[in-house]
Write a protein that binds this DNA or RNA. Structure first.
Lengths: 192, 192
DNA sequence: TGTACATCAGTGAACGCGCGTTCACTGATGTAC
DNA sequence: TGTACATCAGTGAACGCGCGTTCACTGATGTAC
């Protein structure tokens, strides 16, 4: 059943989008080609007309997820709005649509070389994005990169920690503590 | 081939230790019962005389890994020594012996309910340990818990970020930035 | 514009492999006498 | 203390299942005339 080129291109995008969501939700290893194809409204056989292998799909999915993360910081109304969203209970509960580094970073570094490389590129990209945004809102000069790295570390670690605990009280305590940390970081003298 | 009770108990410990190492190195899903048994010097069949299932093993392994993390903070010479070790290139390169939260936290929250619960207990435990140590070295009062959460978040996120990048320069930049962050946190007025 | 045909996206059965788990069997342990 | 036997930790073959990948086939697309 051949379909038009436009439809085929849409299918490819649908597969990539489905993979990007499912991977964040369940991890690379717990998502099968059939799951991804089904979420995209196709059967597993069709997958291989769009991607050479699961590994190839993973590489593209990681790139897409990383880009999404960079766009989220760069296009946020302001950094506070971004922080509030990142450190929200909603984000804790919905990894499927959320930060890919927090959801997949741990296992990402154990994947094949190409996926590892995609994570490396993504990490460099998100650090640059943070540094740009932070350097712009208030000129921190050289410290902008350090500030970016510190913020990203706290955000990723904080989100993961918030996902580990079970009570809402613990979760909110963590989200607040990390929010406070980054707030203090930004307003502190650059000697910090 | 029955063995003495002492030997059997040692085998159980060896299985647990092997699992705890292999899980951190490769993740829960990429380590098979046969791998674990082999690393412990046994065959896969023997596994089931010690553990009811892989899931049961995971629960115990997570508990063991979390305990190891708490012990590491509590028994470090001092907090600076702990930080230096946690944020060392060695730790970046050797997840097998390192922090289980950084290595497995991301996928841990997607495991079965019992494993999730083990992670929740482990998270609470490590927060308590950090708060105790930090509250002791300098009385931060109520802020000790927030300080603990902030430190843990930055450490876990920073370690993961350092594992994602490929160049030593990037890695060292990240380790230094996170070290600086926590240093500043500890010396800052509690209003931070 | 209309028609014939080659192309190729999609389908679903099938293959091979790895993994968690089970089980009949082995033989050393440790207990009962 | 020595002996006979029940116990049970460990072995390795086997089972069932899921998953990545392949492939013969289908039928709509889009091109050549």
């Amino acid at each position: 059943v051949k379909v038009s080129k436009a439809t085929a291109a849409a299918h490819r995008q649908a597969l990539l989008a489905a993979a990007s969501r499912l991977f964040r939700e369940k991890g690379f290893d717990r998502v099968g080609i059939a799951d991804i194809a089904a979420e995209a409204g196709l059967t597993h056989g069709a997958f291989y007309t769009h991607f050479a292998s699961k590994e190839a799909l993973c590489v593209e999915a990681v790139a897409a997820i990383a880009r999404q993360g960079s766009v989220a910081v760069r296009e946020a109304r302001d950094f506070d709005a971004y922080l509030a969203e990142y450190l929200s209970p909603l984000h804790v509960a919905a990894p499927r649509e959320g930060c890919g580094f927090a959801a997949l970073g741990g296992e990402g570094v154990r994947q094949g070389d190409d996926v590892r490389a995609a994570f490396a590129r993504g990490a460099a990209e998100i650090i640059d994005s943070f540094a740009d945004v932070l350097g712009q809102e208030k000129p921190h000069g050289i410290a902008a990169r350090a500030l970016a790295i510190q913020s990203i570390s706290a955000l990723i670690g904080g989100l993961q920690l918030a996902r580990m605990v079970t009570s809402e009280a613990e979760r909110d305590e963590i989200l607040t503590a990390v929010k406070d940390l980054i707030g203090a970081l930004r307003s502190a003298p650059s000697t910090l």
